[in-house]
Write a protein that binds this DNA or RNA. Structure first.
Lengths: 332, 332
DNA sequence: ATCGTTTGCTCAAACGTTTGATGTGGAAAA
DNA sequence: TTTTCCACATCAAACGTTTGAGCAAACGAT
């Protein structure tokens, strides 16, 4: 089955190619009845304009790229879902690329985007990414760029995320309000900006309540191997701890297991709270009290913002924040 | 920053556009030193061929589409990851589309693929999909189509999945070998071909061991709401049950919670086994014994097969299977 | 010196679409 | 009758690339 072109329609209707083009675009220069006839023939031939030809002419590709560190884990699938939904609505393509948390790969993907005339890029940077030169290059080439979730300190590229510090404070203050004082805070890779923001929120919550924090209560997971073991050991060595905060779902599930292995009961022996996309808390038992950080919501908001940037809106630089809320379930 | 074209290079080198094109493609008609000069200028100008122009000429789009029912759940993220990896290696685009488990949407997405000149489509059909007319239409238009994971009975479109019946039998036989006889089997939506295949495997395992099965031990989840509640009630009503099999991760986590709510200890009071992509079993405690059904592996195998189809290989119709293996952990 | 071949390049058409410029016929205005 | 204007359509160039055909110069063979 061959694909039909404007030329085919032109032949069948006796019009010229440009006449057909305008008829299909409802151009005022074309007589109404001609439009109807062309429309019918187009339907009959199952005509669809060739996107490559259109792109070639218009010089925009209708492609949005989402670059994520990984997708086979928490949060990112939902994020992708949210993005995908909005991109589809706008009639754009979404191409999805993974950096595998490697800066090298991330840079290569950016080059790929340049090559492919991608119009807009939503990127959650890798753990290794410590500068934005490659992103600025992309911007130089005319693409719109928006950082999501995992951000970097800069003023040249807008970013959308939650208020990391505040979300963490909320969680800790909830625990404090329940009478907890010795709260183990488990945080991700120190290199991520997100991690330091959340750690700050953790400390601020104690300050605000005139409480002090022992340094061994703030724990970083810098080694991806044996996360569970690291938590298990730390927890075993700290007798006074009555509550655990985890900054992400990935860490949450590991902490959950470590707690169970120690024979501790949630929430009676120990409370557990996390920042979460709201899925994992319902896999575990009891359900985990968490600060909801909806991936889908972030995705939708980010993609929507990106389209505003694409349509030429100015002054969108800087922070764009998503609200979070406490979901109180059985664990704290 | 303007993007450079062959014309720009032509001007700078004094060659014609076609000369430059051939030089960059290492055509034998061009003198070696000319090629070097052209190469240098191209580098200097940061030249990349315009994909739209290439596609327009070659009439292929270098686009692969993955159509999945959803991605914000188990298995599919891994699947997507596997696919993405292979597609990238081949220098193709991957566009990712979601059917939201709706046939209507799935059909619309197929039309979109046709419109966009997609060369190949990997699709995991929606629960509602009961015929493949839309897929045949896509095939008619010249695209390669491959069903993955969730398949449909047909001989015209190849499909890649695990041996669903065998994987289930493996799980049940493992339980039987441990002395279990009253095994609750919890299965997904009856409309899915996958479900009936797995249910068959369940029954075959008992037959093979000369055991009979009460009909209330085979349970279907046809209603997506309150899955946990449905399982809880069924489990509460069946005293003799000593083991539970779940056909997917989605059901596994719900069964895990129902069991815990009933105050039963895994594996002492009740054993639990599942078919799983191998992630969720390590979130829960104790770790869940499962038949590993790796999403990434399926994705890689499927995408690889698709590229073989694209390169014109024939006789690829019918079954393509992925091996599964038992991973024995703490729950059974 | 003539022919044939090779080397290294250019020309021009084609892919399908869009769009500014241009043309034609007819009706209304002068 | 001539001019003006409008409605409707066509022409042709352009987007950037690829590729078959053609062509001039150089070179070796006769």
């Amino acid at each position: 089955m061959k694909r039909s072109t404007l030329k085919d329609i032109a032949k069948l209707t006796g019009l010229s190619v440009s006449g057909v083009s305008r008829a299909l675009k409802n151009h005022p220069d074309i007589a109404p009845e001609t439009k109807i006839k062309v429309g019918e023939v187009a339907k009959a031939l199952n005509y669809h304009p060739n996107p490559s030809a259109q792109f070639l002419h218009s010089k925009n590709s209708k492609i949005i790229a989402a670059i994520l560190p990984e997708v086979n884990t928490f949060f990112f699938p939902e994020l992708l879902q949210g993005i995908s939904q909005v991109v589809e609505q706008h009639g754009y393509f979404l191409i999805f690329l993974q950096s595998d948390n490697k800066l090298k790969k991330e840079q290569a993907l950016i080059d790929y985007c340049i090559q492919m005339f991608v119009e807009g890029v939503l990127i959650s940077v890798s753990a290794e990414t410590d500068n934005i030169d490659h992103l600025l290059k992309l911007k130089q080439m005319g693409a719109s760029v928006l950082l999501i979730d995992r951000i970097l300190d800069n003023s040249e590229i807008p970013f959308m995320t939650i208020d990391d510090a505040k979300a963490t404070s909320k969680a800790i203050e909830h625990l404090i309000s329940k009478g907890h004082k010795n709260i183990l805070g488990i945080f991700d890779d120190e290199r991520l900006t997100m991690t330091s923001l959340r750690a700050r929120g953790y400390l601020e919550a104690f300050e605000k309540n005139q409480l002090s924090v022992e340094s061994e209560l703030l724990m970083n997971i810098n080694d991806e191997e044996n996360i569970e073991e690291q938590i298990y050991k730390r927890l075993a060595s700290l007798e006074a701890v009555t509550a655990v905060f985890t900054m992400s779902d990935k860490i949450l599930v590991k902490a959950y297991r470590a707690i169970n292995r120690l024979g501790l009961k949630i929430p009676d022996d120990i409370a557990l709270i996390s920042i979460s996309d709201g899925k994992a808390p319902y896999y575990l038992f009891p359900s985990i009290t968490h600060i909801r950080h909806s991936g889908a919501e972030v995705g939708v908001a980010a993609a929507t913002l990106l389209f505003r940037m694409l349509s030429g809106e100015q002054d969108l630089n800087g922070f764009h924040q998503i609200e979070t809320s406490l979901v109180e379930l059985g664990s704290a």
